[in-house]
Design a protein around this nucleic acid. Structure first.
Lengths: 215, 215
DNA sequence: GTGAAAGTTGAACCGTGTTTCAACTTGCGA
DNA sequence: TCGCAAGTTGAAACACGGTTCAACTTTCAC
């Protein structure tokens, strides 16, 4: 399959629509995109409850009824957005792992990247967080996937001798959730609420994990 | 002041009412208490948006209008509840610190107590979490207070030589938020969603902190 | 160029749930 | 026992915003 880079964004937008409501022409595609962008702004600024479909369609510059051409309900739109953003977080943070000297250095870089991302996209952060109450299943999906990925990296690192073998699989499952929780709260406090130095935060954190996991 | 134990609960309930709406008789006090209890159930089970004042007053066994004798709005009630519960978490977790051999052992016991508490009171957990979107200021208040308390303990432990002196105040502020975030997510995954062994979770976590903070 | 499919429009419908209020009941102090 | 302040009641007013739909416009395949 050629042209993967350019093609990537479109199917994601297209598949964001509710079942049987995917756009069939380029015009529809554009309209759907406008609604998704407007929704991200509105939900990010005002939260789910305060956001209205009127508000979203006005921002998007389309009529109220147009919304229902692409989505079954306000909840369906929210769910589509969270899925989209969950993937965005993954695609932003994932690649930096390649540049790491070892596994724990990778986690440091990942935290740094996450903090930068959270600071630049506070709206996304808020939307994913609010999904715990709007669409619990996607929230679970997001964090379960993330934790599983971290745990897998930790286990792999243990096989390579970078993490003390006395930590068994169950321990590492627990610790993966702990690392993720730490990252999320550091993001909230130092990137979303504040504009702290990501490098300092990530370094302080990394030092503890490094000592904690070795020896 | 004598009889502190028995007196503790009442003023808290009384002050939960909106400004100028505090009950003035024993009957009023009881009614307010019924509403608060019913609200905890309703908000815990259904979340803020899905909960209704009708539902809350029905659970409480009082008429709809009675609600407005004590609260200005649904939001005001929610805020009062979060404040009440934030204090409950503190009062449950705080005391166990006294039984600890050293500071890091205290954090282990605190996590264990928190996991037990989160498991037994999932409704409370959910309500505090949801306040991020309903009443952001109380959410911030709750976590900022908690993090400050943890940071103070860490700094004190450093003075006593239980934590490596190479961690400066700024580092410990960061790490306090990390510990809190880890605790919250462990609570969500292993106490609220699942019914895991608190002791194992707390031990695995504690081992990492211990190694991480020393030398 | 034509016609059918796709997309757009916004007024009106509709359900829900918060809030008000005037009449009523309770309980306490004198 | 009396009277008034405190508390209670629930029907109705009210606001709000999600959803529907039938008429209209645009696009595109042939």
């Amino acid at each position: 399959m050629g042209g993967k880079l350019e093609e990537e964004a479109l199917p994601r937008a297209a598949s964001a629509a509710s079942d049987g409501k995917a756009p069939r022409t380029a015009r529809g595609e554009r309209t759907l995109r406008k609604i998704l962008d407007a929704a991200r702004e509105e939900f990010g600024e005002r939260g789910f409850a305060e956001s209205s479909i009127v508000g979203i369609t006005q921002r998007a510059g389309v009529a109220l009824g147009t919304f229902y051409t692409y989505f079954d309900s306000k909840e369906a739109l929210f769910q589509a957005l969270v899925r989209d953003m969950s993937a965005q977080v993954r695609d932003t943070v994932g690649p930096v792992l390649g540049h790491a000297a070892d596994a724990l250095d990778g986690e440091r870089l990942a935290l740094e990247a996450f903090l930068r991302f959270a600071h630049e996209h506070r709206d996304i952060y808020r939307i994913i967080d609010e999904s715990e109450f709007v669409e619990p299943s996607v929230y679970r999906e997001h964090y379960e996937t993330t934790a599983t990925r971290i745990a897998a990296r930790l286990k792999f690192a243990r096989e390579k001798g970078e993490i003390d073998v006395s930590y068994n699989d169950k321990d590492l499952d627990v610790l993966a959730w702990a690392m993720m929780g730490a990252n999320v709260f550091l993001g909230l406090r130092f990137a979303v609420w504040d504009d702290a130095d990501e490098v300092h935060v990530a370094n302080a954190m990394s030092r503890v994990w490094r000592r904690g996991f070795n020896q």
